[in-house]
């Protein structure tokens, strides 16, 4: 991610998710199923594939996950809006970075992303969306690990 030099407000995104996490995760009735399946996919991505995987996974969330979840509680709406707009900003910046050939996908990363998409599409649309929203803590901690803010003074 460092090659793409993107400013990410990870602290604020994580804070927004933390506020709504319990409410979201309680709506997930398929506890023994996973979409991001962290151990097999995200957490053994090579550093050179991190950028492309981030772009693709954020794209999945922007294009499908947030859209397929209808929310009436303004508090949850606000939290999800912060995350969705932040993801949109980051994804758009990574797309530009890709155009400058700094964020290309290796075969292995593409295959791993397809595992995630496969997991998502196996579930009913609304259940998949709520499951993916509930797994945002997995995604956010993975992104934070790969985008280390500068050391504090």
């Amino acid at each position: 991610l460092k090659r793409c030099q993107i400013s990410m407000d990870m602290h604020h995104i994580e804070k927004s998710f933390h506020r709504i996490k319990n409410t979201i995760q309680m709506k997930d009735v398929f506890q023994n199923v996973t979409i991001l399946s962290a151990s097999e996919t995200l957490y053994n991505i090579t550093p050179s594939d991190v950028c492309c995987m981030t772009k693709d996974v954020l794209g999945l969330y922007v294009d499908k996950v947030f859209r397929n979840h209808e929310e009436s509680d303004p508090r949850i709406q606000r939290g999800l809006s912060t995350i969705a707009n932040s993801f949109l900003h980051i994804r758009n910046a990574l797309e530009q970075c890709k155009n400058q050939r700094n964020c290309d996908c290796q075969k292995e990363a593409t295959e791993k992303f397809q595992i995630i998409v496969g997991n998502y599409e196996q579930m009913e649309v609304k259940a998949a969306a709520i499951k993916a929203l509930g797994e945002l803590d997995i995604l956010l901690s993975w992104i934070s690990r790969n985008y280390r803010p500068k050391a504090t003074t």
Binding site: V62, F66, A84
Partner: peptide, 17 residues
Amino acid sequence: QGEYERYYTSSTWIPSS
């Protein structure tokens, strides 16, 4: 409405905090 709501769920407006 943020850019996300405008492009992806254009009918969605969120009550201000």
